[in-house]
Nucleic acid binder design. Structure first.
Ligand SMILES: [Mn+2]
Ligand SMILES: [Mn+2]
Ligand SMILES: [Zn+2]
Ligand SMILES: [Zn+2]
Lengths: 150, 150
DNA sequence: TTACTATATAAGAATGATTCTTGTTCAGCA
DNA sequence: TGCTGAACAAGAATCATTCTTATATAGTAA
């Protein structure tokens, strides 16, 4: 799925950190690696659980701080949601989401037709629009199956 | 903006409550009225502040409970966001949002071209898609002006 | 009207997510 | 190899939200 190898992404990570004067710590590296290995739009606590094996002493505060930093500098993206825990997305390419309103699963999809939607005039002229994306909502395949064979 | 008068909406509110066996309390009515008078996608606390003048003893818990109930039964909609406090939208007609990433303002827009977007095959066949909407993000007019004339 | 009962409310405690404070550690550099 | 500011761990604090419980009241039947 990811268009770059994790090795390439890690190298980019190091370069970007250096360029911004950010230390490359083992914690940051582990959090970054956990992120790029995730396809499920993890919450902060999910990432915390994934790095805990390798870093039993890591504070969850470090994960919160680090994910927030990564979002600021563009390593990850915050996923739109409905006021629950924040979810992060390591895929920085333009793509869209389907959200299951029953189980919370968020599925990615690419759809060139959607990427090319034209920004309405009213915003084009007065605001600075930086992104346009489509959000689908409904019930996912797994949840639909659960409802028929209980 | 709102296509029905507030009198009509209030009448609908009463009818819907009765149909569902829900009591029509002064608190619920006040919260509903505050909602339909709002164009700003208010947070629970905003609504609480707006009804407090008329109901100084109202508990904020009542506002949380009531807005949650209203969302369940389709009087209002939750607005997509990034893990901050929930925001509600009394406009149940199909429309889309522009979100200012600097001040948090959420602007409505109707765009028939966006309402008619076709659901990608992969979801059409396996999932039950109930809504499709477009989210624009960027910096709003007011915030842009602030950045040029400080 | 009145009395009854299930529902709704107020108040405050509890929870979950996140941020802040502080003392300690360590990455990057001389 | 030693310095120093940035990063970290731990735990307190905060913010949004939900839960618990005792009280009040809307809807209704007499
Ligand atoms: Mn994604
Ligand atoms: Mn709206
Ligand atoms: Zn699902
Ligand atoms: Zn703005």
């Amino acid at each position: 799925m990811m268009s770059k190898t994790s090795k390439e992404l890690l190298e980019q990570f190091r370069i970007q950190c250096k360029a911004r004067g950010l230390s490359i710590t083992p914690q940051r590296t582990a959090i970054y690696e956990a992120l790029i290995g995730s396809e499920d739009h993890p919450r902060t606590e999910d990432i915390y659980n994934r790095v805990k094996a390798a870093f039993p002493d890591m504070s969850i505060d470090t994960v919160y701080r680090t994910l927030c930093l990564f979002a600021e500098i563009g390593f990850v993206r915050l996923v739109e949601g409905y006021g629950e825990a924040k979810r992060y997305d390591p895929d920085m390419e333009c793509h869209h989401h389907f959200r299951c309103m029953r189980c919370g699963r968020i599925l990615d999809f690419k759809e060139p037709r959607f990427d090319a939607l034209e920004v309405p005039q009213q915003f084009k002229q007065t605001c600075a629009v930086s992104s346009i994306k489509v959000v689908l909502e409904g019930v996912c395949e797994q949840c639909l199956q659960k409802s028929v064979e209980p």
